[in-house]
Simulated assay, not measured.
Amino acid sequence: MPAAALRGAVDLSTLRNRPAAPAAAAPSSENAPSLVFDVTDASFPQVLELSRTVPVVVDLWAEWCGPCKQLSPILEKVVTELGGRLVLAKVDVDANPQLSQAFRAQSIPMVVALLGGQPVPLFTGAVPEQQVREVFAQLLQLAAQNGVTGSVPVESGQVEATEPEEAPLPPHHAEAYEAIEAGDYSRAVSAYEAALAENPRDADARAGLAQVRLLARVQDLDSSAVRAAAAADTADLDAQFAVADLDVSGGHVEDAFDRLLDVFAASSADDRPAVRERLLDLFGIVGDDDPRVLLARRRLASLLF
């Protein structure tokens, strides 16, 4: 992230002079802000001002976004461990359309930073914890180069208080988590498969397995090449599957479902089982109770019968 990245990434000018929100709605200069907080269209000017003192990481997310739910706890953990050298501002894109538009959030999760009131693109999509740590380390270096070296006071015990104690993970889950952090998705898949072999009703292992398989599939994809291949040959199932994977990992869930349902409708009897299997896999990643999954299931059922 060169220093030049501070200029021209996105246009926040329309939000700079917005009337300030009540103090309770955003961090206040008179009271030390939390390390992690929600921000709205109305409270954003205060966040811009805060970024002149301490780097602000902005997490653009939505309740329906499965990858967002995977990434957000990692962001919160790493920011908390840095002890006030960074803060995390969370933006619900559905509730704050002006911020979503200003940051040009075409896919989520999307993570950017603010330094001295200027945006710095970081990454999109769910990434492993180790990559988050590396990016944040680079961000702190860039902040130092640009004179943004303040920090947020952290009360004694605050870091520990933000991390409630949890029961130890079962051995296979712990192995999978460790492998994901290392970017070793094949080992994580094996660990989750072992957990399911021991307990086929382990819902957490089943969900984790689907998510890790998705991460493994998209890890080395060239988005432009894959989308070009899918556009050139609508009967190329591998290309259609790859684009659907990229769409789900980027938060474009409806696009992924519509694509695969259209492919299913046009497929031969021999190809339909593979398309249905991939749809079911993506349904599990997004969540069976998600309204977009329910809608897609109804359309799939109508195509089947």
Rank of each mutant, 00 (worst) to 15 (best):
R297C: 02
A26S: 04
E178I: 11
A229Q: 09
D236W: 08
Q106G: 15
L215P: 00
A188V: 00
C68N: 12
R259P: 00
V93S: 15
L215R: 08
V293G: 00
L122S: 02
P200I: 11
Q240P: 09
R7D: 12
A176T: 03
A5H: 11
V152Q: 08
L209H: 05
A20H: 06
R85T: 05
G8S: 04
E134Y: 07
C68P: 02
Q211G: 10
R299H: 08
L261M: 06
D245W: 11
P170D: 14
I74E: 05
A225G: 05
V248L: 15
P200T: 10
A191C: 13
E81I: 11
E198M: 09
A143N: 00
L82Q: 04
P153H: 13
R299A: 00
E165S: 14
L6M: 12
G284T: 05
A26H: 01
H172G: 04
L304K: 04
F44H: 02
A225V: 05
R187K: 15
F37L: 07
A143H: 00
D238F: 10
L140S: 04
A239H: 00
L50S: 01
V79G: 02
L282Y: 03
T14Y: 06
L304T: 10
V111P: 01
V91G: 01
I285Y: 04
A242P: 00
L303S: 04
P200H: 09
G125L: 11
Q158G: 01
P22Q: 01
R217Y: 08
R85L: 13
L260D: 03
L35S: 02
S268C: 02
R213Q: 14
D247Q: 13
D38W: 03
G150W: 09
R187A: 14
M1G: 00
A231P: 07
V253E: 10
T124A: 09
L215M: 14
D247H: 14
V127W: 01
P97W: 14
W64K: 05
A235W: 06
G66S: 13
G183C: 09
A269K: 06
G125Q: 11
V148K: 01
S186T: 06
V91A: 05
L88C: 04
A42Y: 08
I108S: 15
D59P: 01
L139Q: 02
V293K: 03
L294N: 10
R18M: 02
R7S: 10
D258S: 10
A176Q: 03
N199Y: 10
L260I: 07
T14H: 09
S156Q: 12
P171K: 15
Q130E: 14
E134S: 12
Q118A: 15
V36Q: 03
T40Y: 07
R297N: 04
A5V: 03
P97I: 14
S302Y: 05
